[in-house]
Design a protein around this nucleic acid. Structure first.
Length: 731
DNA sequence: AGCACGCCGACT
DNA sequence: GTCGGCGTGCTC
């Protein structure tokens, strides 16, 4: 073991990175006889308490008087070098402190403490049972003798006795306390050869290309582009199997993992065991166990949301990013990063392949393919010979719905036809609740969020007005807060609840179900809805974007998009791309099995490039147009962006700070600073926000310039500056 | 992230 | 006169 204790003649010391937003590693004295190497987990004193950190490298040379001494080296596999480089790289790229990134990699507060030994019971050797022995006591003794020491709860369950029986046996001297071996039983490992593999020739060819990448080893990025329903998952499962066969770990990133019950089922069928799950709903013992298994290399396949990317894999051999275009891979709080892009970085630093799978690649990814940086593997056909759905635009200017209705005569008629054939339909509207805006009928007062500059959304099912930005909710007031006129108030515009109300009116005998993040609580509820669809217990599913993601509904033949224009409003330069991706994914839910699918898009702008592309299927032309527009404007993927969000409680202080920041802007060729301007949500969670946008040429030194600028222009008290490299959300 | 220090409202 | 609110600053 190489000692990282480059000691300047006097005391041996090391740099220890702590999972805190500090500027860098702290120096600690290494006690006599302790050998430490980079990557070792250590416990160190910090401000009067003990903290867990990672030995990062040689000490920086802080004054000896301030040095404290490492308390202990923790018994855990050291953090791999690729992982440490990754932490450093992400910190530099996102302009956050390495400690803040390390915190994401540590994930669990006390995962490193040795597993606590549990207390249990054992049989006392040589104990002669009296006779008569009660039946319950006999069972308990028998179980304990047969299965060895176990916990009280375990014994009670196994022998079907009460706690009192166990205490009685203890009092009688038949059993005694025992320290149990810290059991951390591992779930069965996924087996690359467990399940059947039935691939079409096209899939098999794609899989062979991915497998070749895994077997060759080394860094590579492959875009696995396949139309919706083409069976991409089964294809990249072959790459997963190849990595497993090499004995290496695999990470699969999914958007919204909590809703991916179907994916997990497919994995189980293919690999005969469940993968290790990692997302925010995995907590407590489960989380701790998962972290340790990943760090020790025992967890072979990890499936997770974006945060799984920072897990300290012992020997990562493959990264897969499914639905790589999905914007939920962008983390917006704390360390701001895009998990797809960072997954590629992780692969590069680890010298391993990355696979990006999607039906609708992000323009950034397409540009990387064009530039030859990524390989592309294409699936042009749906699995099982299913046809792509026919897409039809419904021009709402010509044949609008009746007043206060949202379903056009055309869509209504098509729903009727589908139901008459006994098939299923889906209506998509990316808006939760009943109505996005509520007005007072007497004075026109708009109900707005007290914390945000945003309208309150009426949720009629829940009986509340809710803000979709900060979580504020309140029951509808009895009277208008402005003019005191009594309710009820005027609901403006539709959400899915209102569409459901209309559908129930039009098709009273059909069975409807709603699917939105606020109506589906957790993976089980989502799985239940999906299986109800499969069982044909639902005729019409009405949902928000969560119905667009990866679900396979074999008997769904009609998808109606209630408001295809919804994502196109506002000045977001990515609006076109995003809307196209979302609608293409939604459309892809239709006709995935024998019966052909049909998609109706209700729009007021049928001539818009997005609508044209969806209707004609001429994706290449749409992409080319978007790309050339981006090139003209110097936007990603042809230029780079960074956003600076200046926020604080006092509007005037925030505005002044933003102006000062703009005045201090660097003048650097290839870098242009725009703003400040009020952020699109100028007040969010009670914070006033101003935004500056930095446009940089592809090769301009964006991060160094930002770092130097922010060091010069410190935020005044009461004001925070957040840096968002490669912003996606313009909120 | 904790935990301390430090200046302004309602109370034993 | 104190107890305590959480804003700002520091932790090798």
């Amino acid at each position: 073991m190489t000692r990282a204790t480059a000691s300047p003649a006097t005391v041996p010391r090391v740099g220890v990175l702590l999972p805190l937003p500090l500027s860098g590693a702290y120096d600690y004295r290494v006690p006599e006889g302790m050998a430490l190497a980079p990557g070792d987990y250590v416990s160190v004193p910090l401000g009067g308490r003990a903290a867990t950190g990672v030995v990062w490298g040689p000490a920086a040379g802080v004054a000896e008087a301030r040095l404290k001494t490492v308390l202990a080296r923790l018994p855990a596999p050291p953090m791999a070098e690729a992982q440490r480089q990754f932490v450093e790289w992400v910190a530099r790229y996102t302009l956050s402190s390495p400690g803040a990134v390390l915190r994401m990699a540590m994930g669990v507060p006390d995962a490193l403490l040795p597993p606590r030994a549990a207390e249990g019971w054992r049989v006392v050797a040589g104990y002669a049972p009296p006779r008569p022995l009660t039946e319950a006591r006999r069972r308990a003794l028998e179980v304990l003798a047969r299965d060895g020491p176990m916990t009280g709860a375990g014994l009670a369950a196994a022998a079907d006795v009460s706690d009192a029986v166990i205490r009685g046996l203890a009092a009688a001297g038949a059993i005694a306390r025992a320290t149990l071996q810290a059991a951390e039983p591992d779930a069965p490992a996924p087996d690359p050869a467990a399940g059947p593999v039935a691939l079409s020739p096209e899939q098999a060819a794609a899989a062979a290309a991915l497998v070749a990448g895994v077997e060759a080893g080394g860094f590579s990025v492959t875009l696995l582009e396949g139309v919706t329903g083409s069976g991409k998952t089964e294809v990249y499962f072959q790459a997963v199997a190849a990595a497993l066969a090499k004995g290496r770990q695999v990470l699969v990133l999914l958007p919204e993992i909590a809703l991916s019950a179907q994916w997990l089922e497919r994995f189980r069928r293919r690999f005969g065991a469940a993968p290790t799950l990692w997302h925010s709903d995995v907590r407590g013992l489960e989380r701790r166990r998962a972290w340790r298994a990943v760090a020790a290399g025992r967890a072979r396949v990890v499936v997770g949301a974006r945060s799984a990317l920072f897990l300290p894999f012992a020997d990562l051999g493959l990264v897969v990013v499914d639905e790589e275009h999905d914007t939920s891979f962008k983390q917006e709080d704390g360390v701001v990063y895009h998990a797809r892009d960072m997954a590629v970085v992780r692969a590069r630093l680890g010298g391993i392949p990355a696979v990006l799978a999607t039906a609708t690649p992000a323009l950034e990814t397409r540009a990387n393919v064009e530039a030859g940086r990524y390989r592309r593997v294409h699936l042009a056909h749906r699995h099982g010979g299913a046809a792509m759905p026919a897409v039809e635009l419904v021009d709402l200017r010509r044949a609008p719905p009746p007043p206060r209705r949202w379903l056009s005569p055309r869509l209504e008629a098509e729903l009727g036809t589908v139901f008459a054939r006994g098939e299923q339909a889906m209506l998509f509207l990316n808006r939760r609740g009943y109505a996005p805006l509520v007005l007072c009928r007497a004075c026109g007062h708009r109900f707005e969020c007290p914390n945000c500059q945003a309208w309150l959304v009426e949720h009629r099912l829940a009986g509340r007005f809710a803000c979709h930005h900060c979580g504020h909710t309140a029951p509808p007031p009895a009277e208008c807060p402005s003019c005191a006129a009594p309710g009820p108030f005027a609901a403006c515009g539709p959400g899915i609840e209102r569409v459901a109300e209309e559908a129930a009116l039009l098709f009273p005998d059909k069975r409807l179900a709603l699917m939105a993040s606020d109506t589906v609580h957790g993976p089980e509820a989502a799985a239940a809805l999906v299986s109800a669809m499969h069982a044909g217990e639902i005729d019409l599913l009405i949902g928000t974007q969560i119905v667009a993601k990866g679900h396979h509904f074999p008997t769904l033949t009609l998808v109606g998009v209630v408001d295809a224009d919804l994502g196109l409003a506002g000045g977001d330069p990515r609006a076109g791309e995003r809307t196209w991706q979302l609608l293409a994914q939604v459309a892809g839910r239709a006709g995935r099995a024998e019966r052909p699918g049909r998609v109706l898009l209700q729009t007021y702008m049928p001539e818009h490039a997005v609508m044209r592309a969806l209707a004609t299927g001429d994706e290449a032309r749409f992409v080319a147009e978007e790309m050339s527009a981006r090139r003209r404007m110097g936007l990603p993927p042809y230029g780079r962006l960074a956003a600076l969000i200046v926020s604080g409680v006092k509007a005037e202080r925030v505005a002044a700070a933003a102006r000062a920041l703009a005045r201090a802007a660097p003048s650097e060729p290839g870098i242009e600073v725009l703003g400040p301007a009020p952020a699109p949500l100028a007040v969010l969670r009670g914070l006033h926000r101003q935004r500056l946008l930095v446009k940089a040429a592809k090769d301009a030194p964006l991060q160094p310039v930002l770092r130097e600028w922010l060091a010069r222009a410190k935020a005044p008290p009461g004001v925070r500056i957040k840096v968002d490299i490669d912003p996606y959300s313009f909120l």
